[in-house]
Design a protein around this nucleic acid. Structure first.
Lengths: 217, 217
DNA sequence: CTCTAAATTAGACTAAATATAAATAAAAGC
DNA sequence: GCTTTTATTTATATTTAGTCTAATTTAGAG
């Protein structure tokens, strides 16, 4: 048992794993104790070695998904998580940030930020890259942003938007939620007004961007 | 001037560049003569060093796009191109394949395929990973696939699908194309029938998957 | 307690979409 | 050359979805 920080690298893409390992090798106080390319192998690895740090891209359908942070914390609460993801959906990112992740980078980050983040997380500190910090600030101080409020939709409106985006028509949604079709129309009108959109199609695009629905199943 | 194959690595993500360089280092007969993280620096690099091979991910909005293969070939016709991309839109992939690319991998490929592809491309051969070969075969022998024809839509139908997906209603499209709104309805009905879809919303999702429209502008 | 926002609903009305049918032109097959 | 299919186009009558306006109920903020 060395006194180095024990790190697990989890990414479905071999190039990213190799790149990350290469960057980590330059760090004296870090030891890579394992790699994983899917949820199953990562979780058994975590339960086995209880690493101090897991570096992961959760945004890889079929390999990893956004629930991974909670699953890691359940198995090993002492493990700190550094996300290096290609995700660009604000709501999904907010969700992951609230889910016990310590540090968060995007794959567009430059080398300096990656190294800083790895060092900070290995010390138990938190680190967020510029892009993620901008998102956090935008959410904390919505008045500063020109785009304003991240999601000004009420829970019910989100629910209805999700169903609309899935291709259901008002009548079907009404039957599902046991309310009148007129209620759906009103909600939808309010959603369009709030988001300053003009066509139902733009709602789909919005829902996709916000991570309310997924492309391909 | 050595007798090694001179390779340029182009990827906006530093981790992928590092990973790729690491993999290439293991290849005796390859020499990395430059790296680029955006179109401008790549093109000036290509024009300067005229590499035998460029390895690139064209699917990085703001850094590289699908036109890059043609641009490289214009500057340096002798350069072979190996794409290692995260793109999953069939139509876009077909378009790039027709655009003078020699080899094509996805970032989900395993290490073996990546090494094989690099060696093959360095020798001037072509290489396609399993996933891409499946796509090519699917297009060449549409009857074999259960999903059948990649895009069985006529040009006119594609045009109308694109406009519908942009949020325009039949009347607006009719005015734009100088035809009757009824024509639009008929086309749309045919599109839904051909794609075995049931709601207009699914058309939007289809158009997004096919790369007919783009998320965010 | 009052005021606002969220959630709900209805009736009258308008616009969009479907079903059905069909004409024309071009491409493919024999 | 003739037939068949596909693409493109259109129309009428009918059905359905969606909008506008208006209103009620509930819950939370101040």
């Amino acid at each position: 048992m060395s006194d180095k920080v024990r790190v697990v690298v989890a990414d479905a893409q071999v190039l990213c794993r190799v790149g990350l390992c290469q960057v980590l090798k330059a760090e004296e106080q870090i030891e890579i104790v394992g790699e994983a390319n899917n949820t199953e192998s990562l979780l058994s690895l975590v339960s086995e070695v209880k690493p101090q740090v897991v570096i992961i891209d959760y945004n890889q359908p079929g390999y990893f998904d956004a629930r991974i942070a909670g699953q890691i914390k359940d198995i090993s609460p002492i493990t700190d998580i550094l996300v290096i993801s290609s995700d660009d959906r604000k709501e999904r990112i907010y969700q992951v940030l609230e889910d016990g992740v310590n540090s968060f980078l995007t794959k567009q980050c430059d080398e300096g930020e990656i190294i800083d983040a790895i060092r900070a997380t290995a010390k138990g500190d938190k680190f967020y890259c510029h892009k993620i910090l901008d998102l956090i600030i935008e959410r904390s101080f919505p008045s500063k942003s020109e785009n304003c409020a991240a999601t000004p939709l009420s829970p019910r409106e989100k629910e209805i938007l999700t169903l609309v985006a899935k291709g259901k028509i008002a009548k079907e949604i009404a039957a599902e939620l046991h309310i009148s079709p007129h209620t759906i129309y009103t909600h939808r009108k309010n959603i369009l007004r709030k988001l300053k959109l003009t066509s139902p199609t733009e709602m789909i695009v919005y829902a996709l961007e916000q991570g309310l629905i997924e492309l391909e199943s």
